[in-house]
Write a protein that binds this DNA or RNA. Sequence first.
DNA 1: CCCTTATTTAGAATGATTCCAATTATTGAC
DNA 2: GTCAATAATTGGAATCATTCTAAATAAGGG
Lengths: 144, 144
Amino acid sequence: MNPVENHTLDHELGERLATSGFRFTSQRRCVYDVLLQKRDHPTAEEVFQRAKRQMPDISHATVYNCLDALVACGLVRQVQLERGATRYCPNMEEHCHYYCDECGAVFDVALPPEATSMPGPKGFKIDHYEIAVHGFCADCVKKK
Amino acid sequence: MNPVENHTLDHELGERLATSGFRFTSQRRCVYDVLLQKRDHPTAEEVFQRAKRQMPDISHATVYNCLDALVACGLVRQVQLERGATRYCPNMEEHCHYYCDECGAVFDVALPPEATSMPGPKGFKIDHYEIAVHGFCADCVKKK
DNA sequence: CCCTTATTTAGAATGATTCCAATTATTGAC
DNA sequence: GTCAATAATTGGAATCATTCTAAATAAGGG
Ligand SMILES: [Mn+2]
Ligand SMILES: [Mn+2]
Ligand SMILES: [Zn+2]
Ligand SMILES: [Zn+2]
């Protein structure tokens, strides 16, 4: 990432944090960068490991903190693909997840409008959809 | 439930367990009954509380055990609607979940075929869909 | 530069689940 | 029905992910 892009990203991150009443901190920038750099839906623990490479003194609790702040200001979403650690995704387009039950790979796929058109219980007010497709990725299919 | 129905259910449960190499035990029957009696997608802890009313000495670990066995033999599915406790559902029809983020109510809704028709990553072999619709149930909408 | 308030930090606490090793129950063979 | 082999149950300890706590530090407005 070149310095100009970097500066623009920082600026936008600062704005987003500010409008939700959060301060801009180096830890929050670091955690957001980690998510943008490798979009493989890491767990909080994985984010922590990667963040430490840039910022060796960052703490576990802070990573959870930062992730919460990023979720609260609408820059990141949480994804729960199975029991266990929550994963984090910086793609805020409406999309669903193809999840390889063999190797854990996650693929973002844009949601076609017909996927979100089922008639629900009477009076239910829809907020958002969480759609996961479980199966085996191409690589794992080949290996068998 | 009358004795005849009961006996039929036991028989079917026994068969299903046997074909997956499990034994028929009173604990497994009890746990399955609990799930069939109140289909509100209880957590393991809630199943444990309800099971204890019929079988006061049943243990926590056994409830987890029994739930695992029922899942393994295809009579029950796990549902992960948010971080935290896994919920259990004895409805094995293909369906999605409408989940009230306010009160935690869960509604089963049959899946229309067009909901499961998005083109995924090349070579991905689909096993099953997990579709959750988050929002507010009719009751909770009214209360605001 | 100073003050207020938010954030970070290490470690303790919690909640859900899994593991463990001893006891008990089921099942198939005789 | 009795017995042995094996699976299941049990209470409690261990684990994993996350949240909480209280003291130290850092942002940011005036
Ligand atoms: Mn995603
Ligand atoms: Mn269900
Ligand atoms: Zn794979
Ligand atoms: Zn509700």
